[in-house]
Design a protein around this nucleic acid. Structure first.
Length: 496
RNA sequence: GCAGCUGUAGCUCAGUUGGUUAGAGCGCCGGAUUGUGGAUCCGGAGGUCGGUGGUUCGACCCCACCCAGCUGUACCA
């Protein structure tokens, strides 16, 4: 026996994964339904792809090694080919488009919602399995496609109950930053240093100006003593880069709701570079559309510090942020990061077909958004539950439950083996609204008893002794058997 | 990956300056109460004190290594 003990498995969740129960599921379902309605109203259609893709389709082999990248969950199929769990919904879309190219309408517009997996170290609010909700337009190079996604994101957030000013969708273009770097004298081919600069700018949210300066220069040491290598820029180069991104970050006075003045400022600064000019042209086209459609800078704002993930974005990049404070599980107020992000990726499909297919998309982080919205009381509604106690044979209580279900109510019959007090405890724990009892007494008199658990709980607060509590029969009524459904409806309505 | 902190019952945690049978609360099971959820009381089950090795007459406690978790940081397509 002691041998068996040592081999007993420990009941534990793999780290970075979560169990989710009724309340959260209902809330997520409501959130997804709301977004879905908005996306469908724009003409996007659903697509589902499997959790697994061939690792090379995801582009996730380690450089020069015949083994998948760390960061994805991978396994070898029995034909020796590597499979990986998808880490986002964009790579599977690119594969789908490449595989079905000739049959798809162009532009191809689809939305997809589902879990994605990342094999990384989890942190507070960061998991290895989470849900994303994506919308993409494939096969259009027009800034109209980008502008539409921005407007649709605003509509979705507002459909979820967010007010103007409680969120902001920020736009930038990768080409702008390339223009800045070019004008500063950093070669576009210096990928390593460019990457460090991008990452440093991406950290503006979390670090102060000094920290970002250090990362752009010689490097930075954090509180734990760990050192991060910097981009080795000269002081005047750092100055120019920070001036560009600081439009919205360090100098609130320069934050402008007038898109035009930003453009003038940037044109002077780096409009003469090829990348800079191209980026400005894109953004002007997008903002022109937004203006006419009356999505002003209170909702969608240019922000040069928006960078997003490094690799596949080729033009405009987007990020939606919440502007109100959010309380986390520990009860602390936290600055909530982005709840959606995306951008233009013109080269992804070309990986498969060799032909460039312009594409743009945005992805809502469902799990994160849910956390934020829950603190504002967005919850899914669940039909009240009625528990029928088992007081004779099971068939009897099943019959009552069936009668209630036939009337469109949500009813379950107790299928355990316990006595009445425990059955009531069970109903209580389930959060049931009502309990129905039909024992020998009732049956003999053609009656049935219905108990309102919430009202009973109220009564118990003023009850001292057990005899009194038991005798009170709190919140319950006994009526003619034939009036079951009628009475149940009445009691449910009374609560609401 | 790097750094710091933490591992004792299903959960949250006490505890021993090294000394026989390791504790509490919650939860669970049974009872007081054969058909009434709260409150209260009684009883019970549940632990190789993260693992391995060492020091010692003796280790849950001290030492070394390992493992896991947490926090920060890096990476994050």
């Amino acid at each position: 026996m002691s041998q068996q003990k040592t081999s007993r498995p420990k009941a534990r969740l793999p780290r970075g994964f979560r169990d989710r129960s009724a309340g959260e599921i209902a809330a997520e379902r409501a959130l997804i339904d709301t977004i879905r309605k908005v996306y469908e109203s724009y003409g996007f259609s659903p697509l589902e792809t499997p959790a697994f893709e061939y690792t090379d389709a995801l582009g996730k082999f380690l450089p020069d090694v015949d083994r998948p990248n760390e960061g994805v969950f991978s396994l070898k199929d029995d034909d020796e080919q590597w499979l990986s769990l998808r880490y986002d919904l964009t790579a599977p879309l690119a594969r789908y488009v490449a595989e079905n190219f000739q049959n798809l309408p162009k532009p191809f517009r689809r939305y997809q919602v589902g879990p994605v997996w990342r094999n990384e170290k989890p942190g507070p609010g960061r998991f290895r399995e989470f849900t994303q909700f994506d919308a993409d337009t494939v096969g259009s190079a027009s800034p109209a496609a980008d502008a539409e996604l921005l407007m649709m994101t605003c509509d979705a957030l507002e459909a979820l109950g967010l007010k103007r000013g409680e969120y902001v969708v920020k736009v930038n273009s990768r080409k702008l930053l390339d223009g800045v770097l070019e004008s500063v004298g950093l070669s576009p081919d210096d990928f390593a240093r460019r990457g460090i600069v991008l990452r440093a700018i991406d950290k503006l949210d979390r670090l102060d100006r000094k920290g970002v300066e250090a990362l752009l220069g010689n490097g930075r040491k954090d509180e734990s003593g760990d050192f991060t290598k910097g981009a080795e820029l000269q002081l005047d180069q750092i100055e120019r880069v920070l001036k560009f991104v600081s439009v919205s970050h360090f100098e609130p006075d320069m934050r402008t709701s007038d898109w035009g003045s930003n453009f003038k400022f940037w044109e002077r600064d780096f409009g003469n570079t090829a990348n800079g000019a191209a980026g400005l042209a894109e953004l002007k086209a997008i903002t022109g559309i937004l203006k006419v459609c009356e999505y002003d800078a209170a909702r969608i704002r240019l922000d040069p510090s928006i960078i997003r993930g490094l690799d596949y974005y080729t033009g405009p990049v987007f990020e939606a942020q919440l502007t109100f404070p959010v309380t986390n599980e520990a009860g602390e107020t936290v600055v909530f990061g982005s709840v959606a992000g995306g951008g233009r990726y013109d080269d992804l499909v070309a990986r498969f077909t060799g032909q460039q297919v312009p594409a743009t998309g945005i992805s809502i982080g469902v799990s994160r958004l849910l956390t934020a919205l829950q603190s504002r009381g967005l919850t899914g509604d669940v039909e009240p539950l009625i528990v029928v106690l088992s007081m004779g044979d099971a068939a009897q209580s099943f019959a009552i439950a069936r009668e209630l279900r036939a009337a469109g109510l949500r009813a379950e019959s107790y299928v355990g083996t316990k006595k009445i007090p425990d059955q009531l405890k069970y109903a209580d724990k389930r959060g049931a609204a009502l309990v129905v009892m039909e024992g020998e007494d009732e049956r003999a008199n053609g009656k049935i008893t219905i108990k309102d658990l919430k009202r009973g709980a109220e009564v118990s607060k003023s009850v001292e002794s057990r005899a009194e509590w038991v005798g009170a029969r709190a919140g319950q009524e006994t009526v003619d058997r034939g009036k079951l459904v009628e009475k149940v409806r009445e009691m449910l309505a009374r609560k609401g």
